[in-house]
Amino acid sequence: MEIEKIVENVAFNILKQAVIYLPEDVKQALKKAYDEETSETGRTQLKAILDNIELAEKYQAPICQDTGTIIFYIKAGSEVKGLEKIEKALINATRKATKQVPLRPNAVDPFTQKNSGDNTGRLIPFINWEIVPGNSLELTVMTKGGGSENVCVTGMLVPGEGINGLKRFVVEAVIKAGSKPCPPNILGVAIGGGADISMKLAKKALLRPLNEPNPDAEIAKLEKEILEAVNMTGIGPMGLGGKTTVLGVNIDYAYRHPASFPAAVAFNCWAARRASARINADGIIEYLTHKKKAGEVI
């Protein structure tokens, strides 16, 4: 089969997987939160979330009506032929998924306010490219909800304050966001690089599973410290009060300019939808986040 067709099929499959099935690590974190939540209203909310996850799987329907803005992350092996055809394949897969899954059309022209109706438009779906050695192609999709996107923040911290400035920045972001991003949330946090780079890293950090702490032990410790701190806010599930406000904090970084300390916090709602697959040179397709048989359309 042509690379374009293979990519289109695989992209359609991971889009469908992402919006219907939450990744296992997110499900487990939500179950744990339900077991540990002491607020009665908070428990009602988490119960509704868990019931909803089951119903979505049973009826093969999107978990949330906001099926998000579609963002692809592509790891392209440098030896893969036909890379120039991938963009078109991803756009076609998006259109097909919008119709067939179905997804809510969420791409609006910011000047005319017209909805394109098929989740595509200038730079949407957004594609992040990374060139890696080898001859396989790894596709990841994130379908990013609007409610949690609306509270994402970037800021320029005072370099002299160091990591303490970051801790304050994250706590304030969570307090300000309150009920809006559909807590319990996942936080992608990044520092350094520049204003654009920190947010890009923060958003990408949302892809890391909740049961995988940062490989750097010091950063892993900071992730845990911030997680415990933001869960002391009492915002709780859906902002109705309780001890589960955030399920996990994933931190990434780049080196910074001596005068700048860019920081970014990307929020994801509890419906943290992502899915990945790898297309190998021999045509074998591995679904990485959702363990389904190769080629099986779920």
Binding site: T41, N164, K167, R168, V171, I175, G178, S179, E225, E228, A229, V230, M232, T233, G234, I235, G236, G239, L240, G241
Partner: peptide, 21 residues
């Protein structure tokens, strides 16, 4: 209820700051 929770969150801020030093 949301405004009540927000009020409590404001009260909790100081404790969080203390914990984080």
């Amino acid at each position: 209820l949301f405004l009540d929770v927000q009020k409590k969150v404001e009260e909790n801020r100081q404790k969080i700051y203390e914990k984080l030093g």
